[in-house]
């Protein structure tokens, strides 16, 4: 490789490395703010702000979903299944994938009593796909091993 090309190659590598370093520093500095939601732990330990609109996420605790006798109101508990959980109150239509054990994202405000007043509920899908028969089979095996 001749000298001119070597110089230009060095410039190109420097350009790439410089950009990568800059972007990496920005991303590390913004780390917490890039997360799409607050996990249950941050809601429970008070890191998440009270009274401002935020997004929180967690798994719907089995058995915690209770619907109002009248209207669309529903209350459920979101948990990380590692000891942190918080109650959520929502009035509206839940997404198709909403069910117990499902990962859910809620947008709304945390009130002083620690209840999350949601105005939007989104279902988080995981990376697992399977045909219904296999899912049934897996459920049966889990029920009676």
């Amino acid at each position: 490789m001749n000298r001119a090309r070597r110089g230009r190659l060095a410039a190109a590598v420097f350009l790439l490395a410089g950009t990568a370093a800059t972007v990496a520093l920005v991303l590390v500095a913004l780390n917490e703010n890039i997360n799409a939601f607050h996990p249950p732990e941050r809601i429970v330990n008070g890191t998440a702000p009270v009274g401002t609109t935020i997004r929180a996420g967690g798994m719907v605790t089995p058995g915690s979903v209770s619907r109002d006798a009248e209207g669309l109101g529903v209350t459920f508990v979101l948990s990380d299944f590692q000891g942190s959980d918080f109650p959520v109150r929502f009035v509206g239509i839940l997404p198709d994938l909403f069910r117990e054990g499902q990962g859910i994202l809620v947008t709304g405000q945390l009130d002083a009593g620690g209840t999350f007043m949601a105005h939007e509920v989104l279902a988080k899908h995981d990376e697992n796909y399977m045909p219904p028969e296999i899912a049934d089979l897996a459920a049966h095996q889990a029920a009676d091993p």
């Binding site: 190109a12 890039i34 799409a36 996420g57």
Partner: peptide, 26 residues
Amino acid sequence: AIVGTVNVPIIKYSVDWWLTLHQPAS
């Protein structure tokens, strides 16, 4: 084109580095 390639690993690992609504790779 060169500068923009920095974005590609960010796309790829975004679902692992941060909490996202998008699921990780299957």
